[in-house]
Amino acid sequence: MHTLSRHIHPGWLIIAPLLVLVVALYLGPILNILWLSVTDPEPGFGNYAKLGESDALIRIVWTTVRICIITTVFSVTLGYSIAYAMVHCHQRQKNYMLTLLLVSFWISILVRTFSWLMLLGRKGLVNGTLENIGLIAEPIAFMRNELGVLIGMVHYMIPYAVLPLLVSMQSLDTRVMDASRNLGASGTQTFWRIYLPLTLPGLVASTLLVFILSLGFYVTPAVLGGGKVLMVAEYISVQLLVTLKWGTAAMLAAIMLAGVLAMLWVMSRFMKLSTVFGGAAR
């Protein structure tokens, strides 16, 4: 025991329980899925080849990527505006803003999706109100299309976009901006040439975080898309639970996983990952 502990730090003993659990019950089956993607139904890269052959699969992947990009652009832009306002106002006001942000963060995804269902439906509150004040004659189709999915997703992702940006903006040395102003730059110039580049790490982290979370998003697209907008996550669930085709689902999961890990790696170049998660968990 003593010779062992000379080589292995005793701290590992209390790391082990969680580590073993995650390796055995999480990493194991994930590796198994990766394996399935090249062995089910038959060995080889047949599943991956389908991606080049099947129009339906390509359409699903393209829909997913497109929706994720649009969601990310909107969430990060709006998130930047919120984070900027929060950093540049009085502590009191900032606290109120933070409270609203965190409350929205905490409200169940199911509650929020349900609310959008009530608001955006053909006879929903939004259409009803617009008709009552005579702005529209026919109800607008907010749901069962990409618009609905985008509204729901952006609404869900904004808090995730704000938190890394907030961390990044708070750690800025404001004297740099003062210096820029003193040297004669206008407010706009200072923002574009000093402020924005300095918050770039936060911007990258926030962009990648939102994109990653959007990629595997299941609940909102499934409900607000109403079967009309098929994204990868929902397709996987149909493959597994209805048609029982593990191979195709495993292939899609493998690609998604590779994408996520690649983005995480890029993200780790720009920011300590634990700060991002630390912020996101609050």
Partner: peptide, 18 residues
Amino acid sequence: LLPLIIPQIISAMAFYRL
């Protein structure tokens, strides 16, 4: 930290599988 960031649909697959 990976289980927190890996898409939940993949986690779901993994647990279902095992």
